[in-house]
Computed example of a mutant assay.
Amino acid sequence: MRRLTVLAATLLMLGAVPAGAQSQPAQSGPGNNAVNSSDQNNSNKPVEGRNSFTEGQAKSRIEGAGYSNVSGLHKDDQGVWRGKADKAGTKTDVSLDFQGNVNPAK
């Protein structure tokens, strides 16, 4: 019985390989994953792509980046949310891309 318990424990330990220890398949396409926080941008200009943010989520994301009075939001042909907002007392054009990058118009 003891042998069976030791064997079962050994098999369980062999199955518990840390996720990072296994080799990962090569990634096809660019490695431009979505941004996970509002204080981090992958790009200093909007990145074109299929955008899954709703208008409400886009507004919240832009406000989370320090803008207020967000208005006139619309999604353009490239999948970028665009509108107007205030920051530091100045009204500016602002955009939100599919990665979550919030950028002022340049």
Rank of each mutant, 00 (worst) to 15 (best):
R50A: 14
G66F: 00
N32K: 07
P18C: 05
Q99V: 05
T10W: 10
V35E: 09
L14F: 12
D93T: 11
S71G: 06
L73C: 05
M13Q: 09
S28C: 08
S43F: 04
S37Q: 12
L12N: 07
Q22Y: 12
A26S: 12
L4C: 08
N42I: 05
Q22C: 10
G64C: 04
I62P: 00
G79C: 04
G79K: 01
T10V: 14
V80E: 04
G56L: 06
T54K: 07
D77N: 13
A85S: 06
T92A: 09
G56H: 06
E48S: 15
R2H: 15
S68H: 06
A8L: 15
N36P: 07
V35K: 05
N33I: 09
N51F: 00
T92K: 11
K84S: 13
I62S: 00
G100Q: 00
N36I: 11
V17D: 07
G72I: 03
A8E: 10
D39M: 09
V80G: 04
K106P: 13
G64N: 10
S38R: 11
G31A: 14
R82N: 15
M13F: 13
G64M: 04
T90I: 10
P18I: 05
W81Y: 05
G83Y: 02
K45C: 08
Q57R: 07
P18A: 09
T54G: 08
D77I: 09
N41V: 08
Q22W: 13
S43H: 08
A9P: 07
L96M: 05
K45P: 04
T92F: 03
D97R: 00
S23L: 15
E48Y: 11
E55G: 10
K84W: 07
S60I: 01
K106A: 13
T92Q: 14
V47G: 01
A65G: 04
N32Q: 10
A21N: 09
D77M: 08
L4F: 10
L4V: 10
N44P: 08
P104V: 04
A19F: 10
M13Y: 09
T90K: 15
Q78D: 14
N69D: 14
S71F: 01
S71D: 06
G15P: 08
T10A: 15
V17M: 12
V35G: 06
V47L: 08
A85D: 05
A58R: 00
N69E: 13
N101W: 00
N42V: 06
P46S: 07
S60W: 02
S28E: 12
L96E: 01
G89K: 00
T54S: 15
S38A: 15
W81G: 03
S38I: 14
L14A: 14
N101A: 03
